[in-house]
Design a protein around this nucleic acid. Structure first.
Lengths: 145, 145
DNA sequence: GCTTAAAATGCAACCATGTTGCAACATTGA
DNA sequence: TCAATGTTGCAACATGGTTGCATTTTAAGC
């Protein structure tokens, strides 16, 4: 791997209070280069620095907690993750965009340009976050070709 | 159980191409009387006519397929179900309302009066369904008390 | 009411996803 | 360099969900 890149990624880890280990560098790198989101399983298939699932689970939890990645919805109730934009603060995530889940390839896409419209919840409820997911067919699987 | 009620519920099963068995009557009854949605586990705890998890899983799948119930989102990636309104056709479900998931008690509520606002998906994507979920605190767990 | 096909049940075994505890090791800061 | 703390690896476990198959129940035709 390009050394400059590894250095930068390590810096980003450290900036989020995470240690600069080979595996975690590779993991963040993977997320950054991935077009769509990743499940634990997909991560495990692609990562070379470890084969231990627990290590991966823990790194994902940690990245999530430190605001490096966020959870995205999925068809089959399996957890999926995607990297947060760089300006995503630890406390206030700024990924209030709509997600698109393809029924065919089951990938999840972040529609970065589509904002989540707000709704008014009934009296008594106290809303803290909003999630909007569209299901259908993605470009490759036969959207409007 | 009230015999008239059992009869009516059985009719509803039959109307959806499902057989009138004691367990399935009890199951549909349970869904109808339940205020919020139910997970497989909650169903298992409340049902008396069977203790077999597979039977419950299969009935849930079947009800889902035949349009008697629908899936609702959940915090922990666990499947949850709720009855469809009576006018919910097998093909075109009419539950385009917003769901509310409580972070504290982890229950899911159907906000029947809050419609899902529509969004425009980017060129190339072909949307078929829309899901809007609000997370926060429900009435009992300390919404605006 | 009897017969029969299809649907529903029960059970055992299995799989996938995710978690816990603990010992060993690596990274960082003093 | 040394200690504190974060990270890794492994084994064992927990939960949610599935598959296959034999048996029973339901509904429909005679």
């Amino acid at each position: 791997m390009d050394m400059d890149k590894a250095q930068k990624i390590g810096d980003r880890l450290v900036a989020h209070g995470i240690r600069r280990t080979p595996f975690r560098i590779e993991l963040l790198q993977l997320f950054i280069e991935s077009k769509s989101s990743l499940s634990h399983q997909e991560v495990k298939e692609k990562i070379t620095s470890t084969k231990d699932k627990v290590t991966i689970y823990r790194a994902l939890d940690n990245f999530l907690e430190k605001g490096l990645i966020h959870k995205v919805p999925d068809v089959n109730n399996v957890a999926r993750y995607a990297v947060c934009p760089d300006n995503c603060a630890q406390e206030a995530h700024v990924h209030n965009h709509v997600h698109f889940v393809c029924e065919s390839c089951e990938k999840t896409f972040c529609l970065d340009n589509v904002e989540v419209p707000s709704v008014q919840v009934p009296e008594g409820f106290n809303a803290s976050s909003f999630s909007y997911t569209v299901t259908g067919l993605c470009k490759t699987c036969g959207g409007t070709a």
